[in-house]
Design a protein around this nucleic acid. Structure first.
Lengths: 223, 223
DNA sequence: GGCAAAAACATTGTATCCAAAAATATTATA
DNA sequence: TATAATATTTTTGGATACAATGTTTTTGCC
C-alpha cells in the first residue's frame, strides 16, 4: 500500500523569506555603507517586490541587530563598533563553551575523525598557501560540531548560529592573517583533544579560550 | 539661551508595539490554549486593529518562541514541553552565570545593600505567609541585578530578559511552594555573598547553580 | 454508507492606498 | 544674509484589497 503522502512540504520560498535572506546577505557582505538610511521603497524597487516583505525583513533584521532604527524614522546598518563585537564574542564564548560540553557527551568516534580530517585539510591548505580555503574549512568544522546539537538543543543552536553569522564579516579578515590562522588551527586541535577525552569541563574551558582568541585577533586585524 | 530642543522623543507607543506587548502578555499569562490556532483576523478584531500590526507581532513572537507555525498555515501557542523548558533554563544558567561575573566587577556597595534589603523583604514575606509577594521581590532582585548591565552589555541583557520572560509563567507555580521559595531565597543569599567577595568565578558558579535549582523546582512543581 | 472529486470557504501572502509624521525646501521678514 | 515660519516632498505606519493557497464541506458515484 502507498502511504498517505508526505503532506506536500512547501519547497518554494515565499517572497518574504527570499527578500529577508537576500537583504541579510547583502548587509553581511557589506553592500550598504553604515549609517546610510535604508528606505523601504528603494529596497523594494531594488528587489522587485512590494514594501510589505521589505518591511518584514527589516523588522526581523532589527531583532538580530543587523539593522537598527535611525533616529525617529527608518533603519540603517549600524557602524562597526568594537564594544558591540566584543560583546558578541563574549556571549559566543559562554554559549559555545557550554555547547561543546554538550557535544562531548554525545559525539561519536566517527564524528571526531571527520573533524580531524577537516583540521588536517585546513592545515595543509595553510602550508600550501591556500589561505582562501581556510575560512571554509573553519566554517565546516563549526557546522559539523554544532550540527549535532540541532535536534537536542535547537534554541542554543540557533542563538549560536545568529551570533556567528553576525561576526562573520569581521572574521574573514582575521582568517587571512597567518598568525590568526595558526591560532585558529591550534585551537581546533585542542578542541579535538578535549573531545577525545570526553571531558565536559575541559571542553568548556578550551572553547571559551578559543573564542576569546578569535575575539582578540578579530579586533586586532579588523583595524 | 534656549537649547535647540531635545529632538522630541516619541513617547506614544505605536499600534504595532502596543499590539505586540498585549499579545505577548496574554500568551505569557496563558490566555490561549496551546495548539489552538491563532488567526490574524480574530486577533485583529479582538484588539481593534488591522491585520498588519498583528502579523508583525506574531512574527516577532515566533522568533522568541512564544508562538510557532502550526502546520502549513498560521500560528499557535506551543505546548509546554519539559525539554524546551530545560533547554531555556540551561541557557539562562550559562548566560546569567556570566552576567553575574560581569556585574560583580562593577557593582557598588550601595547596590549590594539594596539587593540585601530585597532578600530580607522576601524572607519576611515568607515568614509572614505572604507567599504572593515573594514572586515580586524575586523579580525585583533580578531586575536590579541585571539592570546594571544594560548600558555595557545590551545584547546579553536582552537575551537574558527574553529567556526569563519565557519561563515566567512556569516560575509562578514554583514560587508558591515553600520548598522552592526557601531554595530561591538561600540562593539569593549566596549570590550576595559571592558579590561581596567580588569573585567573578565564584559568582558564575553560584548563579549557575541557582538557576539549575530553579529548573529542578520548576519541573517538579509544574506537574 | 463510504470514498473521491470538486466546490465553497477560510486564512494567509503580497500589493496598494491613504493619512500622519518627518525631512527638506522655500519664502518672508528682520 | 540669516533666521524663522511655512509649504512641499518624502517616507513611514496602518488599513484594506485582492490573489494564492490551504481546509472543509458538499455532492456524486460505487
Amino acid at each position: 500500500m502507498i502511504k498517505p503522502l508526505p503532506k506536500s512540504s512547501k519547497n518554494s520560498l515565499s517572497v518574504r523569506e527570499k527578500t529577508y535572506s537576500l537583504l541579510k546577505k547583502q548587509i553581511l557582505t557589506g553592500q550598504f555603507p553604515p549609517k546610510k538610511k535604508l528606505t523601504e521603497e528603494s529596497l523594494a524597487k531594488k528587489f522587485g517586490v512590494s514594501r510589505t516583505p521589505v518591511r518584514d525583513a527589516l523588522h526581523k533584521l532589527e531583532l538580530e541587530g543587523l539593522v537598527k532604527v535611525a533616529g525617529a524614522r527608518g533603519f540603517c546598518v549600524p557602524e562597526d563598533s568594537v564594544e558591540d563585537m566584543s560583546e558578541i564574542f563574549e556571549i559566543r564564548a559562554v554559549l559555545e563553551g557550554h555547547a561543546l560540553a554538550c557535544v562531548c557527551k554525545i559525539i561519536t568516534d566517527k564524528d571526531i575523525q571527520s573533524l580531524k580530517e577537516l583540521v588536517q585539510s585546513a592545515e595543509q591548505a595553510f602550508f600550501r598557501g591556500k589561505l582562501e580555503h581556510i575560512f571554509d574549512y573553519n566554517t565546516r568544522f563549526h557546522d559539523l560540531l554544532y550540527g549535532m546539537l540541532v535536534s537536542q538543543k535547537p534554541r542554543l543552536f540557533s542563538i549560536i548560529e545568529d551570533m556567528r553569522e553576525y561576526v562573520l564579516r569581521y572574521r574573514k579578515n582575521t582568517l587571512t592573517h597567518p598568525k590568526g590562522i595558526r591560532r585558529s588551527i591550534s585551537g581546533h586541535k585542542k578542541i579535538l583533544m578535549a573531545l577525545e577525552l570526553r571531558d565536559p569541563q575541559l571542553c568548556e574551558r578550551i572553547m571559551r579560550n578559543h573564542i576569546y582568541e578569535a575575539k582578540e585577533d578579530t579586533i586586532l586585524y579588523s583595524k
